[in-house]
Design a protein around this nucleic acid. Structure first.
Lengths: 384, 384
DNA sequence: AGAGTTATTATAGGTTTTTATTTTGAAAGT
DNA sequence: ACTTTCAAAATAAAAACCTATAATAACTCT
């Protein structure tokens, strides 16, 4: 049974168009909104009224006139509610409290000891609670919690498999929803990062975006036509296990020559250098250690090779590279860009833009927060 | 200015839902349609009436009752119109005339001599004209022409680049539309093939499908959530130029280790055997020529490696392999499947199905024809 | 033959957009 | 100072479509 059309749908659609337009392009007058959206002025007036009643939009005062009555400018009111964004990694739980515009109001981090479900659940609670307590009094209160996790998440939010946590089939969503009585969205860390960069970072206004998160492994979040692509069962984006060397290194996944063995922190263990963290390696790079520089150059090259594969296959508008590895950006970037420039198909490359994360280590938390905002604001989309 | 909601949209949406339901699951009664779609019975009745007036649906008689009035069964009337599907390759132009259900009514092929735009245009005309003349008298007549071409096509139907034809920026669509005064859809050969297999072949009822077309090169058509994914500018699917060997063979595209150098007919030229066509190679394989068998085994392995990459990155529901190379299916398949079974991520593999083209050399023409049908029937889609 | 089921159609009611009209507000001209 | 002019926003009436409910039609079973 699919979504059918009725007046309620029409109104929901138009209302979400009006809100979205004001949110992205405001301040605008009602007439501006009408012109930009194609909706009738009367319709915009009605819907705006409701949005103002919901406190999601506010009139900020008079704008400039071009010869008649001055327009009343409308602005999205990000302060009408709050959300919490959580990033769950293997070592720690990071959470932020933001308003509906993504302004970070408060941040809180705790280390993670044991990784069993109950222990993690408890830590999440300890990280979140202070944020909930600190949330300002707003019209809608805390409207949702978004969580990014290092693993595969299906469409319903069930964590199917998180190898690094040793989790399989964990329904964190329901547990948190029950405890806090607030809608919860759970997604993969890379998907959350992609959402974050697309909404608040390097991918603003981009419709087709691939976010590559390089850390202990590589994962990708793909935004297609403005929407996260999750594949048939929610496991899309495991590009770290794309083979770029048919008979290359053996990976724990069973495949050979996986991209992440050459282009993530996992590549460290294949060098003769003692396995260090990225922070330590970066120190070595800063003092000009030759073998470290060489290693980062090779990582850059391999990153470029993998990104080229994504570019040729996907034809995205933009590639954003993020994740812990990007601390070493300075030593990785030149070779990566050169490799892509040399290898990617000319037409694909022509209008492609490549950049590094703008939100740094906050891509995923901000993205998780945004997923919750997006669910609250409720976007309707139609294609003909 | 995006699509806004009004009653016309609602009606269009619901009508397309009703038609689609009858088309895919018919014969059904009005009540069945109401239950399956969630639309009110009265609404279904109204819309069905209009569809019957348009001759797109017909009442086929009474069905079985389970204790009350017998239902009037409804069926999609594929004979209400015709379309023409064209496959343009480097050596020939193939075209078919089908009804709206994809039944092939007539077929016509002509070889291609010169490859300049005018010459090709003329041959297309010669192939199409007899089909147009042969088209039966129907309510809607010839409702569209769909064309699959070996190159990249943007969203507007402009052929941006077709290396094998040496074309760049050719607006075949407008020329044919002007001449025949009928809507024309143009897409990449792999995309057409994907559409064909999804509608009439191995991918029926599949929402997330990747079609891999292996011939002189490799191209992929990706169907995401039932819709062809074209990327930011229409060039998605050039997976043949995904590198599976970072420092491998040099490709004409500028990249190294491109998949198609190892897993398409282009691999032939890297063997010590004289470069033969697939037809000839298959003959050799049939008589058990050792080096040919070995070669096909290697091609199978490499195909498997590339397919694994697509599976891990995309998480499709189904992979369909087609194209001229699949004439050698018997010698390729075992190794390909074994490679995928060994290399693909367990969760991705679990519910994945892999098969070869069911439509054989007709995937692309049938797909092209279907693209025209789909445009005529006009599908509206909503997501919340 | 009559009661119970199921399919389809008819009618009325409600919601929403659109079109047309009116009101409000500000600047410019007389 | 008052009117005119232009544009923004609000209001009122009209049209379109879906839903709910009821009515009718057709059939099965006892």
């Amino acid at each position: 049974m699919r979504i059918t059309g009725d007046q309620a749908l029409v109104k929901k659609l138009n209302k979400s168009i009006v809100l979205d337009t004001i949110r992205r392009k405001g301040p605008l007058s009602r007439t501006d909104v009408s012109e930009k959206t194609g909706l009738n002025k009367a319709t915009v007036s009605n819907l705006t009224l409701e949005l103002i009643e919901q406190n999601l939009v506010e009139e900020t005062g008079l704008g400039e006139s071009s010869g008649g009555r001055k327009p009343l400018m409308l602005l999205f009111n990000g302060s009408a509610g709050c959300v919490i964004g959580v990033e769950l990694s293997v070592t720690r739980v990071k959470a932020i409290l933001t308003d509906l515009k993504g302004t970070i109001l408060q941040e809180h981090v705790l280390p993670l000891g044991q990784l069993d479900e109950d222990a993690v659940f408890e830590v999440i609670g300890k990280v979140i609670q202070p944020l909930i307590d600190a949330a300002p009094q707003t019209t809608h209160g805390i409207v949702g919690i978004g969580i990014g996790v290092p693993g595969m998440v299906d469409e319903s939010g069930l964590i199917l498999y998180a190898p690094n946590l040793n989790w399989e089939g964990v329904d964190l969503k329901s547990r948190i929803e029950e405890k806090y009585n607030v809608p919860v969205v759970i997604d993969n860390e890379a998907n959350a990062g992609a959402a974050g960069e697309r909404e608040y970072g390097a991918g603003r206004h981009v419709r087709h975006l691939v976010y590559v998160s390089a850390g202990m492994g590589i994962g990708s979040g793909m935004i297609i036509d403005g929407q996260l692509y999750k594949g048939a069962w929610g496991y899309a984006g495991e590009t770290g296990h794309m083979s770029i060397e048919s008979d290359g290194r053996l990976c724990s996944c069973g495949n050979q020559g996986c991209w992440e063995l050459y282009a993530s922190e996992r590549a460290y263990s294949y060098t003769s250098l003692p396995a260090l963290t990225t922070a330590e390696r970066v120190e070595q790079a800063k003092v000009g250690d030759a073998s470290t520089l060489e290693m980062y150059e090779e990582i850059g090259r391999r990153l470029g090779i993998g990104v080229t594969n994504l570019v040729n296959g996907f034809n995205p508008q933009k590639i954003v590279v993020g994740g812990p590895l990007t601390e070493a950006k300075a030593w990785i970037e030149p070779k990566m860009l050169a490799t892509i420039a040399k290898r990617a198909l000319p037409y694909h490359r022509r209008e492609l833009s490549i950049s590094f994360s703008e939100l740094g280590s906050r891509s995923a938390v901000l993205g998780a927060a945004h997923l919750a905002v997006a669910q609250f604001l409720g976007r309707v989309r139609v294609s003909v």
